[in-house]
Simulated scan of single mutants.
Amino acid sequence: MLSEFELITRYFAGPAQSAAAGVPGVGSGVVLGPGDDCAVLAPTPGSQLAISVDSSLADVHFPADAPAAAIGHRVLAVALSDLAAMGARARWCVMAITLPEADDAWLAGFAEGFHALCRACEMILVGGDVTRGPLSVSVTVHGEFPAGQALTRGGGKAGDVLAVTGSLGGGRGGLDAWYAGERELDDPLLAAYLLPQPRLAAGEALRGLAHSAIDISDGLLVDLDHLCTASGLGAELEAADLPLSAGLVARLGEAAAREAALCGGDDYELLISLPAAQFETARQRLAAVDVPLTVIGRLRQAPGIAGVDAGLLRNGWRHFPEGAS
């Protein structure tokens, strides 16, 4: 069995990582990478850092028996989605992984999925930790943007239109497909759940246009509520205008598909607010990176979220629901 340090060298700091990330120090901002007590990084002059951590637990955030490569992709993608919501460019990450055992085949698949997304996002894994126990992975991502240009939840203005990237409900539909026994990742719903695509290019393109932004991880209504609270506003949704993921209605039915889009979570799309006059410019910028943008409502001065059944406002993902004991 591999020791902790052999495991790190083979899968996360050795030739596979070098091939995935390029040569540290050559335009990478990595002064000192894996192998020491800390990584040493050099942000781009004139930039500010965005840092976020996301923890994924087996059978809570992903099925423990999902393909290892999909798990490797997913644990990084959900963390990167937070950078996308801030309009940040991905730069570096560190990962702490807890494993029940050092299974070579599983680790090779996990590393393949993780490093492939690193390459796609031009991100470098610069350190981490390995321990033994129930399967879980925590990824801390570092990004940057020009100073003062971060997108935030709290910048919304009354009268802004609300818009979402991509389509909604695919995460919930994919989870349903998994539990129904679907295992082929060419199924668009299953791919949406296990292989979400962080909207990094879209987030960067929206800098200077969007007043506020958040990624949709816990469900549209829950995350819209977060945005409204931070901006001190309410919202009015046009639920009929929600862009539904392909195949969602066929799998769940019309009513359940719309509820999945509102409450299902795991979509990792961006919800933004921006002036109506800027929407077409934003749509064109996102079209250039092959990401659709759809208006679904507006922000308003009056509190609360109108346009949906009040009962749905209590749905969505929460680790610690109100009233739970």
Rank of each mutant, 00 (worst) to 15 (best):
A202T: 11
A202D: 07
F12L: 14
G27E: 08
G181A: 00
V141W: 01
G316R: 06
A66M: 08
R74I: 10
R298E: 09
L313V: 02
A255S: 09
V161Q: 02
L117V: 12
G72F: 05
V26M: 15
H226S: 13
A257E: 03
V23D: 08
M95F: 02
A69H: 05
L49K: 09
L76D: 01
M86V: 15
L227V: 04
E254D: 13
K157F: 00
P67S: 07
V295G: 10
T44N: 04
S325V: 11
G304K: 11
I124A: 15
V75E: 04
P243M: 13
W317L: 13
Y193Q: 06
L151G: 01
P196I: 12
G219C: 04
L312W: 06
L49N: 07
L242E: 09
G27P: 04
L248W: 05
A256D: 06
W178N: 03
G232L: 09
L57D: 09
A230L: 14
R318Q: 11
C263E: 10
H319Y: 12
V164Y: 00
R314D: 10
L221D: 01
A288E: 13
H73T: 13
S56K: 10
V94W: 01
L299R: 01
D176T: 13
S52Q: 14
G169A: 11
L195M: 11
Q301I: 10
L224H: 00
A39Y: 03
L242Q: 08
L312H: 02
E101W: 08
G154A: 13
A310C: 02
D215A: 11
G29R: 00
F110T: 02
W92Y: 12
A150R: 15
V31M: 12
T152K: 04
S28E: 04
D59R: 07
L125C: 14
G304T: 09
G33L: 00
A310G: 03
W317Y: 13
P100Y: 07
E238G: 07
S231L: 06
V130G: 04
C93R: 13
R199I: 01
L252P: 00
R132L: 13
L200T: 03
V23W: 11
G159M: 12
C263L: 13
A21P: 06
Y179F: 09
E254N: 10
L194S: 06
R285K: 11
I71S: 07
G174N: 12
F145P: 00
Q17E: 14
G27M: 05
A16P: 10
D290W: 09
P188K: 02
V26G: 03
R10P: 02
A324D: 04
V291A: 13
D37K: 11
V94H: 00
A261G: 05
R91F: 01
R199P: 01
D65L: 08
F12P: 03
V126H: 01
D160I: 02
V141D: 01
R318H: 12
G264F: 03
D309L: 14
K157G: 00
C38P: 12
A58E: 05
E254M: 10
A96C: 06
G171A: 05
D215F: 14
L99H: 07
G109P: 11
Y179V: 02
L189M: 08
L237I: 01
G27D: 07
R258H: 15
P275R: 00
A116E: 14
A85E: 02
V164A: 02
A277S: 15
D129G: 11
P303H: 04
L206N: 06
L185T: 08
G46S: 11
